[in-house]
Simulated assay, not measured.
Amino acid sequence: MFPLEVVKLVAVDFSYKPSEIYIKKGTPTKVTFKNEGNVEHDFELVSDEDILIQTTSSTNHQHGKTAAKKVHLHAKPGETATVVLKATAAGTYQFYCTIPGHKESGMVGRITFL
């Protein structure tokens, strides 16, 4: 069994730091999402069920949508949200902010599981 990895992801207006993340597949990883911006932001990881959510992530968007079977974290300014996940396969997956206009303004990134 692999030790728990920790990834810190920060949202600012309108980008993520870092925007590219590399994680070893099969490794349980705690993603800590902190909003240091001035407006609400979220983090949604797009996958085809290759990523197992090992703790609860919020599938309810604060702007009325849902993210069933997706990794989704939401944080208002100054807030932090976390999830533990594990990828079962290698691959590169996009993440983005689902709040209207944020993705289009550049709030996108990639996680690569090696």
Rank of each mutant, 00 (worst) to 15 (best):
D13T: 13
V108F: 07
S19D: 15
M107E: 12
A90F: 02
A90C: 04
Q54C: 04
L45D: 09
P18T: 04
I51F: 10
V84T: 15
D13N: 12
H61A: 13
M107T: 04
A67Y: 14
L114I: 08
E44T: 13
I99C: 11
F33R: 04
K70L: 05
Y93S: 02
K34D: 01
V39E: 10
Y96A: 12
D50R: 14
H102A: 11
L45P: 12
I99F: 14
M107H: 06
T112M: 11
T92W: 00
T27Y: 08
T112F: 10
A75C: 09
S19M: 09
K76E: 12
D50G: 01
E104I: 05
F43E: 05
N38M: 08
V10E: 14
T59C: 08
H74W: 10
G64H: 07
E20M: 02
K30S: 03
A90G: 14
K76G: 09
T32E: 15
V7P: 09
T112H: 13
M107P: 00
P18F: 06
T55R: 10
V46T: 06
F95G: 11
R110F: 14
P77Y: 03
S15N: 13
V10Q: 11
A68S: 04
P3K: 13
K25T: 11
T32D: 04
N35K: 04
Q54Y: 09
A75F: 07
Y96V: 13
L4S: 03
T88A: 11
G64Y: 07
F2Y: 12
S105V: 00
T92A: 12
N60K: 13
V46R: 05
M1R: 09
T29H: 04
K76N: 13
V10T: 15
H63N: 08
S105Y: 05
V12E: 14
P3I: 02
V7Q: 14
G64A: 07
N35P: 04
K69M: 11
K103G: 06
E36V: 01
S47F: 13
Y93G: 02
G64T: 07
H63R: 08
K86E: 14
I99Y: 15
T88P: 00
I99E: 08
P77I: 03
A11Q: 09
F43Q: 06
H61K: 07
N60L: 09
L85C: 04
A89I: 00
T56M: 10
K65H: 10
V39K: 06
F43K: 03
P100T: 03
A90E: 15
Y22V: 15
L9M: 07
T29D: 01
A81K: 07
Y16Q: 02
S58Q: 13
N60Q: 12
T88E: 14
M107N: 01
V84C: 05
L4I: 10
F33L: 05
F14R: 09
A75N: 08
D13L: 02
L9V: 15
V10D: 06
E20Q: 12
N35M: 03
E44M: 10
Y22E: 15
T59N: 11
I51V: 15
N60P: 00
T82W: 02
C97W: 07
E40W: 00
G78T: 11
L9Q: 04
R110L: 13
T59D: 12
I51N: 12
K70A: 00
P100E: 08
D50N: 14
Q54A: 01
E5W: 06
K30Y: 01
